[in-house]
């Protein structure tokens, strides 16, 4: 069997990109972004992307670099604030945007990965989000139908992974990554630490290897923080 391990992000992208493709990209804010794969996608030059991602990076980081390089045609996101480039491209009509409630976005992706074409939710009923979508009553309440999301390629970032593609995420860098890993034709994972098979406790795996087609050891993670908030040390704790 051909192995899943690739030497770097560029090699891992070989043969799986094409113009006009749909891409899922994990991460929330700047936490849990597949930075190596995003950089490699920029160098790869693939265009006309529909990108499914909660946000779209921030100045010079994350998906912002693909946006800045004119590679993204449409975004499916829940929140695009604090991103001036995004706002200006959208307001000028150069970028298409489909805003989803964050839970609807997550569940559409989960449904896509689980082979469930549609589901009903209370979220968005009576708002623009529900316009044009079928509604139905369950136990006396109105719910709106939402459909699954699937992609040609998902790029995810994990903390540790083995050669089988089993993944463990770290803290809130998990976010959309495990859901997106299940919902694409091809999933590529980059990890901070690629370990031999047997090094991870099977009871602690967050994403089982079946969902991961290719895996690579990432490098040069920026660990950028969007809003650094701290508290002062109490005097006695300094002593």
């Amino acid at each position: 069997m051909a192995g899943k391990v690739y030497p770097n992000a560029k090699a891992a992208l070989e043969g799986v990109t094409f113009d006009g493709m749909t891409l899922m990209s994990g991460g929330f804010g700047l936490s849990g972004n597949a930075e190596n794969l995003i950089t490699a996608l920029k160098e790869n030059g693939v265009k006309g992307l529909t990108v499914i991602s909660n946000n779209c990076g921030a100045d010079n980081v994350g998906l912002w670099v693909l946006l800045n390089n004119g590679q993204i045609r449409k975004m499916i996101s829940s929140y695009v604030g604090e991103n001036k480039l995004f706002e200006s491209l959208y307001l000028s009509g150069a970028l298409e945007l489909e805003l989803n409630p964050q839970g609807t976005l997550a569940e559409r992706i989960r449904a896509g990965g689980a082979g469930i074409p549609a589901f009903y939710t209370k979220t968005g009923v009576g708002t623009v989000v529900a316009e044009g979508k079928p509604t139905e009553q369950f136990d006396g309440e109105t719910y709106v139908r939402e459909s699954w999301l699937r992609a040609d390629l998902a790029i995810v970032k994990a903390w540790r992974g083995d050669h089988e593609g089993n993944l463990i995420y770290r803290k809130t860098a998990r976010n959309f990554n495990p859901n997106m890993a299940t919902a694409a034709k091809v999933t590529i994972a980059e990890v901070e630490e690629l370990v031999p098979n047997g090094a991870l406790d099977p009871d602690q795996i967050h994403t089982p290897g079946i969902f991961v087609n290719r895996i690579l050891q990432g490098q040069n993670y920026s660990h950028r923080i969007e809003f650094r908030t701290t508290r002062p040390r109490a005097a006695k704790e300094n002593a």
Binding site: S77, S78, Y79, V80, G81, E87, Y90, L91, L97, L99, P101, Q102, G103, T104, T121, K122, T123, G124, V125, T127, V129
Partner: peptide, 13 residues
């Protein structure tokens, strides 16, 4: 243009 984030889910659920 910012987006609803999780607000629509929170008020509904």
């Amino acid at each position: 243009v910012k987006g609803m984030g999780g607000a629509m889910d929170l008020v509904a659920g």
